[in-house]
């Protein structure tokens, strides 16, 4: 399957396409990717990104590309590559879109979609302890720190209870 299209007050969430690779590669090439295993070059970024997009075909979930006023502003979605204990809610926004609540708005839509589509009780975030900006966002949209296992020792794991959605 491919991603459904979701709409929020300001945003459209849709299936990623090849043209979205540019800003993803720029992110992975920059120091902003230090909490995601970066910086890495375009070739390595392509492999990771293609495998993320592939989740739609393999698992029925994956990353949504996020558009604001017709422009790509980031990617928010659900990920479970090999080794992840359970599906993760993940986000990325372009530098230009930071600080405008884009990730929060899109993440809330994805939480609702996951609850409606799969009936899941929860989603988690796996975040490196130094990524304070991402941790703050996770808490702001209703997540709570928890003791569930991470993808590696030291991960901050944040639980999003979907049952009330």
């Amino acid at each position: 399957m491919i991603a459904p299209t979701l709409h929020t007050a300001r945003l459209t969430l849709r299936m990623p396409v090849l043209a979205d690779f540019g800003p993803r590669a720029e992110f992975y090439a920059s120091d902003r990717s230090v909490w995601e295993g970066g910086p890495i070059d375009r070739r390595a970024a392509w492999r990771i990104w293609a495998s993320e997009v592939a989740q739609w075909s393999l698992m029925g979930f994956g990353p949504f590309a996020v558009d604001h006023d017709g422009a790509y502003v980031g990617e928010v979605g659900v990920h479970q590559p090999e080794g992840y204990p359970e599906p993760e809610l993940g986000w990325f926004v372009t530098p230009e879109a930071e600080g405008r609540g884009v990730a929060a708005e899109a993440a809330m839509a994805v939480k609702q979609w996951a609850r409606t589509s799969f009936g899941w009780d929860r989603l988690v975030n796996y975040i490196e302890p130094g990524n304070t900006r991402s941790i703050a966002l996770a808490l702001r949209i209703g997540g709570q720190r928890c003791d569930l296992p991470g993808t590696e020792p030291g991960d901050v794991v944040i639980l999003h209870d979907l049952r009330a959605l």
């Binding site: 090849l18 690779f21 293609a50 993320e52 997009v53 592939a54 075909s57 393999l58 590559p81």
Partner: peptide, 9 residues
Amino acid sequence: GHAVGHWVL
């Protein structure tokens, strides 16, 4: 995933 994503993209 890369092999599958290559098809998708």
